[in-house]
Simulated assay, not measured.
Amino acid sequence: MRIGIVCPYSWDVPGGVQFHIRDLAEHLIGLGHQVSVLAPSDDETPLPPYVVSAGRAVPVPYNGSVARLNFGFLSAARVRRWVHEGDFDVLHIHEPATPSLALLACWSAQGPIVATFHTSNPRSRIMIAAYPILQPALEKISARIAVSEYARRTLVEHLGGDAVTIPNGVDVDFFAGAEPKSEWQGGPEGRTIGFIGRIDEPRKGLPVLIKALPRILEEAPGTRLLVAGRGDEEEAVASLPEKMRESVEFLGMVSDEDKARLLRSVDLYVAPNTGGESFGIILVEAMSAGAPVLASDLDAFEQVLDGGAAGQLFPNEQADALATAAVSLLADPERRAELRARGTRHVRRFDWSTVGADILAVYETVADGAASVAPDERIGLRARLGLARD
């Protein structure tokens, strides 16, 4: 199959959508498909051979964060050329409701289009206001995928139609097989807590974790917090008493290999995110690596953690509750082992062997068309995939 995938966000600033697209592309290539990914990127960014640059992106505030998007006349020309030259059997665009390459590709494409919706934002006035502009492009979409029930709900409430829910995928064995790193592991003098995310993006929740840290250090002496991600490290710990700052170790941006090793090494992974999450890929990665997970009780996180069975939840933005749960878990190896075992079993449903097969089934449905399907079956298929009406 010739498959074109459109990434709306800049390839040089890592994020969940970019990682999902990268891993999906490499999974499909591994199965023998021809895949090309179009994405914004800076000129100096090293790109995999399957990625085509659409030029530089500009930062735009979006969904409680800052997204780096690419839009305009020059971008539109590049998209049209890429679509024409690719002659794809299926075009898979991500986040078509954002002012990005995905929307431009929707306008340019003529063949079957699959769209994946990642955003969970139940009160998006911008999306509601933009609907008249988006509608002509969105009507060209052949099938819709939502990465979670909450992303699906956002789609239904703001844009109409429906979608089949297929979660983000993870190479479970990659994380499960990583070698722990001795300097990141806890020892007789204390345990290690891990956090991975952008330091200067408040919704990732590091300020909540930092606020909880004094009590954690007081009740679980010797604990270390390992932080991986980009941002202002000095500002992140400015609220801590100076003597406690040495208990926080900043690792900066880490490679995929070191991220897996970090998750394999820590005694507890904490995800204190405060909102704007439609899935929670880091939770899946942590479970894959066998890390016990403590996470805020966002709806999306609760779903990923099987209602709290595969990881422990605490009330969102409540630093005291986070501290209480963390201290309890750090002192209870049996409870951590239970969470580790449950997470390891649960996470298999997110492996690319399952997720990739589900996405391919959508591709094949829209590529083959419904000509050979009986009328009643065709209606059922189109309804399940959130397709436009015949």
Rank of each mutant, 00 (worst) to 15 (best):
A228T: 11
K204M: 11
T192W: 02
L305P: 01
A260R: 03
T344E: 14
L24I: 04
P221D: 05
R335F: 00
I133Y: 14
R152D: 02
P40F: 12
D89K: 03
R342S: 14
L134E: 04
W82V: 00
L385G: 00
V58N: 04
E219Q: 15
G308K: 06
S53D: 06
R22D: 11
G16C: 02
Y62K: 04
V147G: 00
S255G: 04
V254C: 08
L31Q: 12
V66M: 04
V17G: 05
E149M: 13
E219S: 12
R203T: 02
F71N: 01
L226C: 11
L217S: 10
L28E: 04
P112N: 12
R203F: 06
R215C: 04
D258I: 07
F19Y: 10
H33L: 06
P61S: 01
A331L: 06
T119G: 02
F301Q: 00
A331N: 14
A67V: 02
N273R: 09
G16D: 02
R264E: 02
D368R: 14
G231N: 08
C106M: 14
G32T: 09
S36Q: 15
H20Q: 11
G369N: 12
E233M: 10
I193T: 00
E157F: 11
D376I: 09
G4L: 14
D87C: 12
V147N: 12
A361W: 14
